[in-house]
Design a protein around this nucleic acid. Structure first.
Lengths: 327, 327
DNA sequence: TATTGTTTTGTAATCGTTTTCATTATAGAG
DNA sequence: CTCTATAATGAAAACGATTACAAAACAATA
């Protein structure tokens, strides 16, 4: 495999000139440029990014930390990140943390080792203090789930408002006994969506159903089923369910169907995220849509700007209530 | 940010010794080792992989080329790849090709530029000749979808046999008019699964239903719906459907439900892949399960072995027919 | 033609490691 | 205490690019 030296020798120029041609940078005579390009072709030379990276002290890699790649919510975000990154000559290093802080710190080391130029964090499980320290030295942005305290920039939506809209809608179509299937409240989004839920109930003077809140261990279909089974066992069954994730909602839906009750006539259900599959369930799922793809694009741009040393501003995207058959 | 020179100076040793401590390689006195480690801590020094990579002429990055990250089939494979790679101190560079050969070749350049040590290809859209040329110089393995012609090693299943099993099962439970929802036959798996379908029909002497084969443009829920709508419009409706992907099957299922027909009493349906969703549909989907995670692990191991210069053998995993409510 | 200014090119240092080979320190044997 | 064998260390050359600075080539002007 040829290197820049060989090209220079064969073309009868210096490596500096070859490098200049490569980066079509400063002024090189058309004649030499042509000659060099010809030799590059003859030797089918490809510049090594290893050398270039070392010299430039950059990896042109963005580290993307997600809890779980199988969750379609993240797939869409990653789509956006990748698209945006590639346009600006970056690549993404996708790493799945499984919300395990040990695993996460293995990956975070990649930035300390200069193998990544920045991090897009989807689910910070690392302890806050460490994270904030880290963000003073390195370029980090948060996407979707974030930590308010520090000053690490983030891209997200207004979770409280979105949940409020969902629940208000359930109330307006006649529901009072509205269950909440929430995930672990260690997540900001979980706390915020719960607050939106409570706010809507409070606003319409609905009280006394605090046992209709269920917290799942994780976000999986099975957790959704489990939650719903639990809720159906209550002496006062809910007439509607708001789940903080489509995945949970779909599990719940399955459980309702299995119990012989009908959606939406017996129980209405609203999910969150508008994953592709939410339109394939029976019945189709009413849900809150987040602009996942755009959020991915925005966080990649934000990170790249941060790497370049620019000042960046937090972004809050709009959500939308998508009404379908489950309500 | 400290470098190895500073550590060496502060510890009063040479960079060689520091490097040896770092790689806890050859013999370093316990005393100096301790001293060096202490300085490393004091300076919170982290070795740069950029320097190391250049020196070692490796990137320790595996390029994973998938057509579409949103397809849960691939997510599971990626899980396996990543898990395996990380254990051996590799990271994965995940790249989505969208089955676009131009995009694919951008990514393939990464290996020419030494930014990746090898490639796991899921959906070779690059032209075959180029691919085979490439594989003479670089380490490449194929996973799931592959090209038989060349001698690029692959990990897959026996698609023909799997399809044969699915269709034979449909026949045995009493179906004759069995539709096939296939994807584009540019894919090997599509051609093979079709052959399995035909083999089963032929074996049981079923003929005359060749208009019950539908080819979709892509693999999406919508394509599945479209296909089913088309099949339901035939004068002789099928009593069973075999779809070459769960995604297509789920779309088809949706369409059958929408048309007022019942699954499985009116129409039975079998999918392929056993994605997580397939257990959440109404009714749950009978499907062929592939060991996606294990396939991911196997292809990562295979690639790493190839990078190390070892000889590798193709692997064909077993499939399994998972009978659920849709049949 | 000599002088100046502007392009174009080359030399050599640099990025941060690893590793070969030479050298020095240490221990063990006589 | 000296001599050897071995273990521990260091000096310096890679790896393959980029780039500051110096030098050479060229063009323009007097």
């Amino acid at each position: 495999m040829a290197n820049i030296q060989e090209v220079a020798r064969k073309a009868g120029v210096s490596v500096a000139t070859v490098s200049r041609v490569l980066n079509n940078n400063s002024n090189v005579t058309e004649k030499t440029r042509l000659k060099v390009k010809q030799v590059i072709n003859e030797l089918s030379y490809e510049p090594s990014r290893l050398g270039r990276n070392l010299r430039n002290s950059e990896s042109r890699l963005l580290l993307v930390l997600i809890p779980n790649i199988s969750n379609p919510f993240y797939s869409e975000i990653i789509n956006g990140i990748e698209e945006t990154a590639v346009k600006q000559d970056y690549n993404i290093l996708l790493c799945e943390t499984n919300s395990d802080s040990e695993r996460e710190s293995i990956y975070i080391n990649l930035i300390k080792n200069r193998m990544a130029d920045g991090i897009i964090l989807m689910d910070p499980t690392v302890n806050k203090k460490k994270l904030h320290e880290l963000s003073e030295t390195y370029s980090i942005v948060q996407c979707s789930e974030y930590d308010k305290e520090g000053n690490i920039p983030f891209v997200s939506i207004n979770n409280e408002l979105a949940a409020y809209h969902a629940v208000r809608y359930l109330i307006k179509i006649g529901n009072k006994k509205i269950a909440l299937i929430n995930s672990d409240e260690k997540f900001l989004y979980a706390r915020e969506r719960k607050r939106g839920y409570e706010k809507a109930l409070h606003e319409f003077g609905i009280t006394g159903y605090s046992d209709l809140i269920y917290h799942t261990d994780a976000v999986s279909f099975e957790d959704g089923q489990l939650a719903m089974r639990c809720l159906l066992d209550k002496k006062e069954k809910p007439t509607a369910v708001f789940a903080v994730s489509d995945i949970l909602a779909i599990g719940a839906l399955k459980e309702i169907n299995a119990s012989g009750l009908k959606v939406p006539s017996d129980i209405s259900i609203v999910g969150f995220d508008k994953i592709a599959f939410s339109n394939m369930t029976y019945p189709t799922l009413t849900t809150i849509s987040q602009p996942m793809y755009k959020m991915g694009c925005a966080s990649a741009n934000m990170l790249i700007n941060k790497i370049k040393g620019k000042q960046v501003e937090n972004i809050t995207f709009d959500h939308e209530l998508v009404i379908r058959e489950s309500t």
